[in-house]
Nucleic acid binder design. Sequence first.
DNA 1: TCATTGATTTCA
DNA 2: GAAATCAATGAT
Length: 170
Amino acid sequence: MEKKLDREFFLKDVLGVAPGLLGKTLTRVYPDGRKEKYIITETEAYRGEEDRACHASKGRTGRTEIMYQTGGHIYVYLIYGMYWMLNFVTGPENFPQAVLIRCIKGFDGPGKLTKQLAIDKSFNGENLNTSNRIYICEGLKNISFKTETRVGIGYAGEEWINKPWRFKLI
DNA sequence: TCATTGATTTCA
DNA sequence: GAAATCAATGAT
């Protein structure tokens, strides 16, 4: 039987949660009742107001408010006017952190996976611990992963561009 | 390499 | 109000 991740899992620091999500099972229950499971294969960490690549680096606004909540909340936003990005908030309250889910098995790319999962604005603010339409379960054990630099953050400055905060399942 | 696309943020 | 920005994708 499937087992949801402990609530405490998302209260850890994002740099522990992001690689920890690799190999886990993302379960999506669609409006028509279908249930599909996907293996998470790539994540990225965004950590704190110091991290200039993090949306919260400019302070708390209407959009970034969700990142200041406790771990387990879902942060969804639209990029380039077309693609929804799926993020999981991590860490304690008032410390903005989030993990961007970049890839799941079979859907290689953040825009593609949200399209497949039918993620939209209505998921913003939802909680993985209580939602019955999207949640994370235990998955592969003894996984290995590699780190890379993050994508699409050329504006953040070298110090942040070079952080190895992108995690890929091998 | 370029067009698409709209919420969010910043400046007035 | 108006203008610039943007963690991407698919077609050319």
